[in-house]
Simulated assay, not measured.
Amino acid sequence: MKKIILNIGILLGIIIGISSCKKDDYFVGGDLHNPKINMTTYDWMKSNKYGVFDTVLMLIDKAGVKDKINAPGITFFAPTDYDVYNYVQARSIAIQKVDPKKMWTVDSIIKYELNRFKDSIDIYIAKESLLNGSLTEKGKKYKNAKGGEFIISYEETRDPALGYNPNSTVIPRVVMFTHLFKPVADDVNVTSIVPPVGSRVLVQTSNAQTTTGVVHVLNNSHTLFFYR
């Protein structure tokens, strides 16, 4: 089984939506790309030259949920291999509080948690197309395929790490995915949401439009399934 490689040099670029760029484009590694991709969501992830989805796709294959992410007209908020790594690390820390010698690995997911993976992948799927052009600063609530709710927003950022320059009149914008653990009001200030109410994740690649749906790739700091 291919190991998850932790190499900061191969991370996908943070995705910054700048007002001078078309909302319909998408960014990868700081470069603007045509949003129309002539392959399925699964094949696009598989074609990533850095292999950052290899473990995710292996789990998708093992759990038999390829058709879920390739379903026509959906939006998939794709986790990366780094998000899986963050998950197994967090699980190992929890297990070692009981037995310091135990570890949780990707093999543990395959052996014990494929049913959970098959079910929980639905929290990353919306049964509609959510393109950057339809997103707002304040965000809007949507249903995921599991029946829960999330908020997706297109927010201005003044974080220098995300491209903000105080000497520029252009304010960068980023797509944020906010998973909700508890119900919130429709007019909630999305930037104020924190656990245990919800968890916010930066989208690092947004607005990719495959032949089967829309893909927004979650930041590598995310933990799979929002494990806490």
Rank of each mutant, 00 (worst) to 15 (best):
G13N: 10
L130V: 12
T157Q: 07
K62C: 10
V201K: 02
I4T: 00
N219Y: 01
V217T: 05
M58Q: 13
R91A: 13
K140F: 04
T223I: 12
P72Q: 12
G9A: 10
I151R: 00
D83V: 09
V52E: 02
G163S: 04
K182D: 11
P100W: 03
A185H: 03
I109S: 03
N70K: 12
D122T: 14
V215E: 04
Y124L: 03
Y42R: 05
L6E: 08
H216Q: 08
T178W: 02
E113L: 05
K111L: 09
A78T: 06
Y82T: 00
I14G: 00
K22W: 13
T40E: 08
T80Q: 02
S47T: 12
M176I: 15
A126W: 00
K140V: 14
L162S: 09
K102C: 09
K101N: 15
L11V: 03
I121Q: 06
K146P: 02
N86P: 04
I18G: 02
F226P: 00
V184F: 02
Y50S: 05
Y87C: 01
S199W: 10
I60P: 01
T210D: 06
T169P: 01
D107H: 09
G30W: 11
A90M: 05
G139L: 04
M39H: 06
T223D: 05
L162T: 11
N220H: 09
V194E: 15
Q204Y: 06
N207T: 10
V197I: 15
I69S: 03
N220R: 01
E149F: 07
F150P: 00
K146S: 15
Y85D: 07
G198V: 02
G29E: 13
L135M: 15
I110W: 05
V65P: 03
R116H: 14
N86L: 00
L162P: 07
L11F: 06
K138H: 15
I151M: 05
D67C: 00
R173I: 11
P35C: 09
L6Q: 04
T157G: 04
Y112A: 03
G51Q: 03
N70R: 07
I69Q: 06
Y26L: 08
K146A: 14
A161K: 14
G198Q: 01
I5F: 01
K36T: 14
F27Q: 12
Y154D: 12
K127E: 14
E113N: 14
A94R: 08
I109L: 11
D54F: 00
M103D: 12
K3L: 08
N115W: 09
D24G: 10
K2N: 10
Y87K: 01
E137D: 15
V98M: 12
L57D: 08
G198F: 01
K143V: 04
V215F: 05
V88P: 01
S192P: 06
T157C: 04
I95C: 10
I15C: 11
F53N: 02
L180D: 11
G51N: 08
G73I: 10
T223A: 05
